[in-house]
Every structure is written in structure tokens, then in C-alpha cells.
Design a protein around this nucleic acid. Sequence first.
DNA 1: CGCTGCATTGAAATATCTCAATCAATGTGG
DNA 2: CCACATTGATTGAGATATTTCAATGCAGCG
Lengths: 253, 253
Amino acid sequence: MRDGPVMLERFLRGRVDEDLVRDERAALEAIVARTITFGPREEVVARGKRLEHSYYLIEGYALRHLSNHRGERQLVQVSIPGDFVDLHAFPMKRLDHGIEALTRVKLAEVPHSALAELVGRRPHLARILWFSTLLDAAMHREWLFCLGRLNAECRIAHLIVELAERLRLAGLYSSGVLPIPLLQRDFAEASGISAVHANRCFRVLQERGVVTIDGDARLRIVDMAELKRLSQFDSAYLYGDGALKLDTLADQE
Amino acid sequence: MRDGPVMLERFLRGRVDEDLVRDERAALEAIVARTITFGPREEVVARGKRLEHSYYLIEGYALRHLSNHRGERQLVQVSIPGDFVDLHAFPMKRLDHGIEALTRVKLAEVPHSALAELVGRRPHLARILWFSTLLDAAMHREWLFCLGRLNAECRIAHLIVELAERLRLAGLYSSGVLPIPLLQRDFAEASGISAVHANRCFRVLQERGVVTIDGDARLRIVDMAELKRLSQFDSAYLYGDGALKLDTLADQE
DNA sequence: CGCTGCATTGAAATATCTCAATCAATGTGG
DNA sequence: CCACATTGATTGAGATATTTCAATGCAGCG
């Protein structure tokens, strides 16, 4: 056997038993049509577009967002390496929201036709892909709680902790510095607040020694416990650390 | 052939081509273990619980919600007849949120073991079930936009329009009166505002002749156009009126 | 050097919350 | 039938959170 899939090495890492998922990653990687690159802030997929393929995020970061006619924008997710950015287009056929590259991104293009053939042969893989789209839904629900019940400062704290935790699961975070170059405006658009107010929240968080902002917009987490306390963070919704186990799937089929 | 499924007659009505889905509904109905009833405001499923079956909502209305330790609650969806209230537990195995009966509800209990066997034999059904869980995700995203970018009055307007539109697809709305006995507190918990403020918003909506509240908390929509304008409502996210067509599925398999 | 994009700050306006009180409808026990 | 408790709706007043507007600072960049 070979070294294992390279492009998709992070797919569902930390979520699914590694022994279980290795073959599935390889099978998926085999149907990747090509890789494609977008530059920072380029539109990857437009809202409403009909899609014949989905993109898996190999490198870089992307933003999923809804916008209205006045240009007001609400982020609904920050995609990190290891995520499919628009897998829901496989069952849904079109996008109800837009996708924008935050940084330069490298994407693997997975044709829906090949995917349909593959999941027909591999029920395990079908279940895993379904699971991955429902992780998005669980994250959406958590964001709904944040937007509905936390104040601005706590929402920002929550986003910081969520990103750190997801990056940790993907093997992309350990030093305390978030490697994602989100602007304060992006935090504002995720948190449903104005950019000005986001700035004031960051100032407070810095003054209290919870985070620091180094040059080049690098965010360093100084007091993770305080961030978790502020945001009432409970990582259960991320279904991390192998929530989907081998036996769980095996005993169903 | 018989009259068709009775319990599941509303499943994905308006979303999927009726000729396509008839057999799938019958196959699903055949594995329903039993029906079960809960009274108003009873807890149907507790957050965090591991589930071996999922519930389909035959009659009545249910609330999906997240709560924190202080009892602050955020609704994430209002379930109406024709919805699975917790189908995501099939791939996820446990619930990241709680489910409460709003009214007396009648549910069909679908065992995951039988479901696994069924979707293994019926790729179309698997796709349809997956689709139905992604509809929830799309609705979550729309709610995120509402909570993040609309003011209290517009959020309430949006919820009213969404419910009317979903009920219409399910064949449960036509007269202008919403048949769902949501309290003002429920609207508040869905909209991320206080019950007091929800009350003031309703007063404004009534004074402007947009809605009326009859006795017994019945909400009547008087000016739907104004509600849609306020909430910037675009029904695309509901994937209604047969978004998922026969040919869409057929050409994939 | 002058742009441009982003961060920062202040001040006033607005939205929303909290607290406390009242009201109306309903149900319950005596 | 009355007295009383309960639940949800309603209202007012003051406190707090957040927005908007306008201005400034600051760094990279052609």
C-alpha cells in the first residue's frame, strides 16, 4: 500500500477513526478531476450557481457567506484545510450562499458524477460524506446560539476558540497563534456586528490580556480559559476526537 | 398499488418531484417501528443523547433549540408536519441540541438499523434523506443572516414569512392564519431578542396593519408583501417547488 | 509622494435590555 | 359562585449595547 492520500489527508481528521477513513480518503482522491487555485478575496463559487462538482480545500482558508442587495454580508462559516467547502451542492445541486477565498486557496475538484458512482459502491463513504455536511449544520446551530444569545465580545471570543479547536483537530494549530489572516471586518461579518464595534471588542480583549494582536494581523491566544469562559464554549458540537467510530458504522451495515 | 403512504405523505412535499418520491415514502413508512405522542412543551429528545432511531413529525409542531446553563435558549428551527426532527442523528449518532414539543405531537419512530439497511438498497432514498438534512442547514444559514444583519422587527417578519412558506409547501397554510401557536416568547427565543422587545415589535407590526393577532394567539398575515419587504425574504433557500427533480437524480446513478 | 486599505478613536444617535408593575384570561379548590 | 394562583401579554422608565458618522493614524505600494 502507498503512503496514503496526500491531498485529502486532513479530511475529517479528528472526527472519524483514522483506520476507518484511510481507504475512503484514497477512494475520494482517486476521483479528483484536478486542483484549482484562487487568489485572496476571489469569488470561488457564486450564490445560486448550479454545480457539477464540489471543492475540497487543500490549502488556504475560505469564507462562506450570505449577502443582501445592499452589500451587507453575514459569514456562515470559515473553511479550513480538510473541509469540503460546498459538498452540500452534491445533493442540493445549487448553492444558497457564496464562497470567497480568504487567502490564496488550493482546491481539489470532485465531479458529482464520479462521486455518485463512488458512494453507490461504498456505503461507508456515503455515510462519512453525509456526516461531514451535518458537521456544518451543527456549527451553524452553534453560531445561531452565539448570534442570538451572546454579546459582541463573547461572539468574537467564541469564533476565536472555535477556529483554534478546529485547527487543532486538523493539525494546524498548537503555538497559540491563529494562522488565519481574518480582518477585523471579517470577525464583524461573522459576529453580526459593525467593524467599528469589533475593533472596540478586540481592544478590550487585549487590555484584559486575553489575546494579543501581533503585526500583520496575527492573533495570539494568551488566555484560552478566559476565552472559553466568555463564550461558554463546549466543543461537543464539533464532534471531535473520533466521535464517529468504526463500530458505530460497522454495526449498521 | 395502494393509496400511498399516509403517515409520511408530507415528507419533502413541494421539494421533490412527487412521482419520484412516492415509492421512497412508502419504503420509509414500511420501516416505521411505531408512532409515539408527546404533550405540549414536553421534551422529545434531550441534548447529547445517543439515539438509535429518528423521529418523523406526523402531526403537531416542535422546537429545536440550544440552551446554556443559565437557561437562556436559542431556537434553531421550528419543525412542522412532514419534517424529520432529528434525522441528523442517523449519521451523527447523538444530538447537539434539544427538541421540545410545541403542541401535542405525533411522531413516527424510524430505527437507524432498518434505515441503514434501506438506504443501502435504495440510493435514491439515501440522496433524498441527505437532501432533507441539508435543507435544515440551509435554513440555519438563512437564520444566521437574520440574526446577524436584520433588526428585531425584521427578524420576526422573516420568521413569519418562512413559516407561512414552509406550511404552504406542506399543504398546511392558505387562509392567512398561521396554524402554529407560537408564543411571543418563542418568537423572542427564535429571534435572539427579549420577550418584552418581541412584544413591542408585534405591536408595531399590528399598528402598521401588517399582521393581526386574534384571540388565542392566532397570527393572521394581512400584508405579506410588507413582511417580505421588511425581511428581505427570498425563498430560494427553501429549495421549494420541486427543486430536486427526477432527472437530477437519475442522471447521477 | 500620494494612494489605498485597514485599524483606531470620539461623540451622538439608535436599538435593545432589564426591571418592575399591571392587565387579562384561565384554571383550581372551596 | 368566589378567592386565588398562574401564565402570557403589555407598558413605562432607566440602563446598557451597539451603530453611525466623521476624523485620524499608519503601513504598504506603485
